[in-house]
Amino acid sequence: MEDRPLDVSELTKTYRRSFGMKSHHAVDSVSFRVAPGEILGFLGPNGAGKTTTIKCILGLLRPTSGSASLWGLRPADPRVRARIGYVPENPDYEDSFTPMEFLRLFASMRGLDAGDAGLRRLLARVGLQGWESSRIRGFSKGMRQRLSLALALQSAPDLLIMDEPTGGLDPIARKEFRDIMLEERARGAAIFLSSHLLSEVETVCDRAVILSRGRKVREGALSDLLANEDRHRIVHLPPGGSSEDRIEETVDSSGLQDRIDAIRQSGGRILEVRPAFRSLEEVFLSAMGGDRG
């Protein structure tokens, strides 16, 4: 078994339409990888193909071409299933069951020997303490998301695949979800996080892939994506100035050298020159604009 949890290569999913209508490429030649212990953000607007990609990764959809492999194996391989946790978008469950019943059943299906105490701890971890024996019928969307997370975490997975996990959650619950993601990464798990909540991705992800209309339009470490190659930030001191007088300014990269020379010639001291950072929203909108343009 390979070390890399997820390897998506030239993945394409095309939906054929009948009566001579054009085929629709939901995902078009998308490739990326997830390394052990990293959180990969998977970004894109609605209809970009994020959920389709996830379903191909999980074996729920058959790719038209290309492949998705987990630790070098097919998604349907039982050895793979034992190592992944999945948090679906808008999950729904048999609503006549209680969370405890569900966790017991999933434990049994997974061949886990989980006692009730462990299951209660797991429910408490996702914020469902006190709801262990309540029917899911009465659960809000956010509570169903929490149950979904508990089911995904139950087997201490090596790869967590999360599809818009915080969509129906309030800000406090989102923070709790983020903390759990970071705890899981610290444990060594890799996380594949599909989201259109840019702040969330910016906070927790190591790398990001941006998808637009089924195609990958950006990929990279978050620090690289956010770095603005066109603009630089210069931190300098005026002639004879102390650290309290430091000046920060942003300049176009094309005029960077001239500006540095000018500061030096005037007797100033350069403290730091670094690429100016953009927000992920700016990166995202620029990627979308470029793709649409």
Binding site: K55, L58, P88, N90, P91, Y93, E94, I161
Partner: peptide
């Protein structure tokens, strides 16, 4: 329809 098949078929069940 209710998406209950997704988490089941994605992880524990073939």
């Amino acid at each position: 329809e209710q998406r209950t098949a997704m988490p089941l078929l994605a992880v524990p069940l073939s």
